[in-house]
Simulated scan of single mutants.
Amino acid sequence: MNFASVRIITDDVDRLVAFYEKVLGVSAERPAPVFAELVVPSCTLAIGHSETVHLFGAGSAVAANNRTVIIEFRVQDVDAEFERLKPFVGEWVKEPATMPWGNRAALFRDPDGNLVNLFAPVTEEAIERFSGRG
């Protein structure tokens, strides 16, 4: 089994796609107006309109109501990304800091309130832990 993607359900696909295009620096693929994928080498971030949830027969998902998942992206330089993203990120939860487990990280919320973490391993142990990962 291979991990394929994370999908965010939203009531405003266009707004969230535009935001993540800026964050990730890639253009979204839009096979339908209610669905988009932002593909980077290590993962795919999918964004679907709340109208799409019923297609899976999975009950309901409430857009902009996530309180348990953090979407994480490994970056080369957390401080540089923080400076680059400051102009359009509305809510920074944590400015760049080094975490006890050896990652430098910055945490913010996307326009729907989902938590997004940018991190880079910086200690010897953290760098070793991530060696060999994509």
Rank of each mutant, 00 (worst) to 15 (best):
L45W: 00
L45S: 04
A46L: 09
A46P: 00
A46Y: 00
A46S: 12
H49C: 05
S50K: 01
E51F: 00
T52I: 15
T52E: 14
H54D: 15
H54F: 01
L55T: 11
F56C: 07
F56W: 13
G57N: 14
G57F: 11
G57H: 08
G57R: 10
A58D: 11
G59W: 01
G59K: 02
S60C: 04
A61Y: 11
A61E: 04
A63G: 13
A64Q: 13
N65T: 03
N65R: 07
T68W: 07
I70S: 13
I71N: 04
R74N: 05
R74C: 06
Q76M: 02
Q76I: 01
V78S: 08
E81M: 11
F82T: 02
F82N: 03
R84I: 04
L85D: 07
P87L: 01
V89I: 11
E91N: 14
E91S: 12
V93H: 14
V93K: 11
E95G: 00
A97Q: 11
P100K: 12
P100I: 10
W101G: 13
G102I: 14
N103Y: 15
A105C: 08
L107D: 09
L107P: 11
D110Q: 07
P111W: 00
P111H: 02
G113M: 06
L115H: 15
L115K: 12
N117S: 14
L118Q: 03
L118D: 03
F119H: 08
